[in-house]
Amino acid sequence: MAMVEDIVLNDARVSEATPADYFELLKPRVMRLVVFTALVGMLAAPGAINPFLAVFSVLAIAVGAGASGALNMWYDSDIDGVMTRTVKRPVPSGRVTPTEALIFGVILSVLSVLTLGLVANWVAGGLLAFTIFFYAVIYTVWLKRSTPQNIVIGGAAGAFPPMIGWACVTGTLTIDSAVLFAIIFLWTPPHFWALALWKMRDYDNAGVPMLPNVVGEKKTRDQMLIYAALLLPVTVAPAFLGFGGVTYAVISTLLAGTFLWLTYKVWAIAGADESLKAEKYLFGFSIFFLFAVFATLLVEAVVFRTFGLAFTLGDIF
């Protein structure tokens, strides 16, 4: 009896976690980007979706992305506690236990996939399930700590949302939606490595093999330049495939050109400037770049739908 009491008393831990702590597990900043890109995929896709179902689908995609964030925080709590950028997250700071984060992530994963499957279609639902699996298992558990190309593979998980949004409308995977995927996929490495170049010590302390720590800064800059060069034609591709208009063609060329120019500067300066101004500027611009590219597609799609293919009452009811 005494043994039972000891176990109960020693294990008695009453949580002080607030709903805000759980919300933080969903990585709200990443979720914002996911919502935005999924919405663009949905609106750029040919065809119509009921506005209610569109809102619910975006919500399900957002929760699914958040769930994979919670699973990531469960598995990564040890290294999150070492890096200054992540030390205040709910798990390493002790507000939420790893087990609570795991259960929270699993429940939300299941609910979000089922909801998207039932509300939109099972191609979209299946793609969301694959995305969660890819981010939580392939990236977080397997590759993040074992290869310096972790960010390239992890970037694929972040690139799926516009494809899922597209699939919600069409129920298919097409070359058009794959181009939206490719834009984010090719954008991720230079975006993250620009950050990694000035946060190298952090990743080193945590034992995460980021490219600059493993192959050196020079080779990292070489690879950033290659990705930025590949990003240029892919970013402009929607204009040629027909789901981006003339406005998109002009703006995307300017944006991808600037991105390539800034990456070239990072490559050419090669760390000679110790304050790493070029790297920091590229990181800031890369966030603006992705937002602006997708915002342009969004505006074009809305204008097209409003004046060319407007929603009718029949779509709603």
């Binding site: 002080e16 607030t18 709903p19 179902l53 509300v119």
Partner: peptide, 27 residues
Amino acid sequence: SRKARNIAIALCLVAFVGVFYVATVVK
């Protein structure tokens, strides 16, 4: 914090039911 968590769970459940109710009617 327990009270806040309980309220949050309740609100999420109500929203979840609402989503499925509306989605069913629309579908």
